[in-house]
Structure formats: structure tokens, C-alpha cells
């Protein structure tokens, strides 16, 4: 994960944070010890999302290096989503 954002927008609703991240890189933490980084192309209120240029990290119980999988364009179903965070690349 990279640098800390120093400024933040005072958004009315949590989903607004996501709206500001369109066309930006985000990291999404998912159920099943997975994380996926990618450029946010679309989302809805269920947190269904489409990410481009995505990299998925799959962690295992030991703290080994996670498995990675690349995808140029992926739809992520919202019910797996735990949290979403912007990243600066």
C-alpha cells in the first residue's frame, strides 16, 4: 500500500467517497482474505464494481507472499466487499 492522502473531501455520504474515485486507483478488501487493486470504472450502491488493470492478491493463513492474479477488466460483485480505499500510484 502506498502513501497517505493528506487531504480529504467532506462528503455527505460514504458512497460519495467512491464516486470521487472514478477513474482512480483503489484497493478493495474482499471476503476470503482477498484484496484487489484496480482503476475504478463503475460502481453502484451495492458496491458492485468494474475495475480495469486489476491485480488480485489472495492471502493464506501463514503470512507468506500472497498469490496474485491479473485482470484487464473485471466485474466484482458487491456482496464480497468489506472495505474500499483510495490509493495514490
Amino acid at each position: 500500500m502506498s502513501t497517505v492522502q493528506t487531504s480529504h473531501q467532506q462528503a455527505e455520504e460514504p458512497l460519495d467517497l467512491i464516486r470521487y474515485q472514478l477513474d482512480e486507483y483503489i484497493i478493495v478488501k474482499l471476503r476470503g482474505s482477498r484484496e484487489i487493486k484496480g482503476k475504478l470504472q463503475g460502481f453502484d450502491s451495492h458496491c458492485n464494481m468494474v475495475l480495469s488493470d486489476a491485480l488480485e492478491y489472495i492471502y493464506n493463513e501463514n503470512d507468506d507472499e500472497p498469490m496474485t492474479k491479473k485482470s484487464e477488466m473485471v466485474f466484482v460483485r458487491g456482496d464480497s466487499v468489506i472495505l474500499i480505499s483510495p490509493i495514490i500510484e
Binding site: V4, C47, L83, S85, I87
Partner: peptide
């Protein structure tokens, strides 16, 4: 661990 500044947490979790 320190996380990146802003996060969104989905309600069901």
C-alpha cells in the same frame, strides 16, 4: 498496521 487515510466500510460487515 497503519492504513491509508480514508476508507469506506460496507454496512453489512
Amino acid at each position: 498496521s497503519e492504513l491509508i487515510g480514508e476508507i469506506f466500510i460496507r454496512c453489512n460487515n
